[in-house]
Design a protein around this nucleic acid. Structure first.
Lengths: 150, 150
DNA sequence: TCGAGATAGATGCATTTGCATATACCTTAG
DNA sequence: CTAAGGTATATGCAAATGCATCTATCTCGA
C-alpha cells in the first residue's frame, strides 16, 4: 500500500500518460487539415462563450503563453475565423468572438473530432467510469482554478 | 442524464482542463531553472528505464515529434545529461541512457517537483479518489497503447 | 548474394513558441 | 487634474517544433 505522496504522484503520472496517449490518437485522426488541434482548442473555447471574451480570459482556458495566444488569434483573425474588437469599456483590452465562418469551421472540425473522442472513451469505459473520471477531473480543475487566484 | 457520447466528451474535456490547470500550476513552481518541464519529462522517462532504450521507444512515451525529440536529445547529450550510443545489434538505432550527472539532475529537479505534485493532488483528493483517478487513467492509457498497435 | 522495400534516426526549413520587454490605456493617491 | 503605478495586449528575437525528406542500415525473397 503506497504512501499518500506516492499515490498522488502515481495518479498524476497516470493522468499525464493517458493525456499523451489520447492526444496522439486524436492527432492521428484525419480532421486537422483545416485547423490544427491548438487552433481548434481556441475555436472550441470561443464557441462555448455566449458573448465575446477578453484575450486574458481566453488565455486562462488555453494552455499557451499570452504572446503565443495573441499571435495565434492574429492568424485566426487573418483567416476570418475570429473577430477581434477593442473593448469599448476598457481601451486596453480586446473582445474575441467567432465569426460565422469560424463557428462553421468549429462545427465542421468538431463533429468528427467528437466522434473520435467518443469512440476512444466509450470503448474503454462504461458509463459509471466515465462519470467518475469526469467528476474527478472537474474537481481537480476547479481546485486548481481556485488555487491560482490566491 | 447525458447520452453516452456526450458523457464521453465531457469526461475528455474535463481531463484536458485538469491537465491544463495542473500544468500551469506546476510550471509556475520554481524548479525549472536547470531543465525545462519537457526536458524533465525525458530525463524522468529515462530514469525509469533499467537499461538504455531506443529513441523510438522514448518517443512512444514522450509527446513530441520524432525530429523534435531527436534534437532535444542532442541538446541533453551536449549538456552531458544523456548518453547516446549506437546500438551494436542494429546499426540504424541509438541507445539512450542517463549519465551520472543526468541522473543527479533528474533527482534534483524531481524531488521538489514531486512535492509540488503531491501538494496539489493531496489537497484536492482523498486516498480513495487518488486511487480511482490513477486506475481510470491507467486504464485509458493502456487501452490507447493497445489500440495504436493495431 | 543481391536488390527492393522497410525501418531508425538525422537534417533542411518554415512556422510557432516563450521570454523579455514595449506600448497603450486605466486607476488612484495627492 | 496629474503623475506614478498597474493592467491588457503586442512585438523583437532567439529557441524549439513539426513536416517533409534524406541517409544509413536492416530484412527478405528471388
Amino acid at each position: 500500500m503506497p504512501g499518500r505522496p506516492r499515490l498522488a504522484n502515481d495518479a498524476w503520472e497516470a493522468l499525464l500518460t493517458a493525456h499523451a496517449q489520447m492526444m496522439r490518437r486524436l492527432a492521428a485522426e484525419d480532421v486537422w487539415c483545416e485547423v490544427s488541434m491548438r487552433e481548434y482548442d481556441v475555436l472550441y473555447t470561443l464557441s462555448k462563450c455566449p458573448e465575446p471574451i477578453r484575450l486574458g480570459e481566453l488565455n486562462r482556458r488555453v494552455l499557451l503563453s499570452q504572446p503565443a495566444l495573441s499571435r495565434m488569434v492574429d492568424r485566426l483573425v487573418e483567416r476570418g475565423l475570429v473577430r477581434r474588437e477593442r473593448d469599448a469599456g476598457d481601451g486596453r483590452g480586446v473582445l474575441l468572438s467567432l465569426t460565422t465562418t469560424g463557428r462553421a469551421q468549429q462545427r465542421t472540425t468538431g463533429r468528427p473530432h467528437a466522434l473520435g473522442v467518443a469512440r476512444a472513451m466509450t470503448t474503454t469505459f462504461d458509463d459509471q467510469e466515465l462519470t467518475a473520471l469526469r467528476d474527478l477531473c472537474r474537481k481537480l480543475a476547479e481546485h486548481e482554478a481556485a488555487a491560482e487566484v490566491a
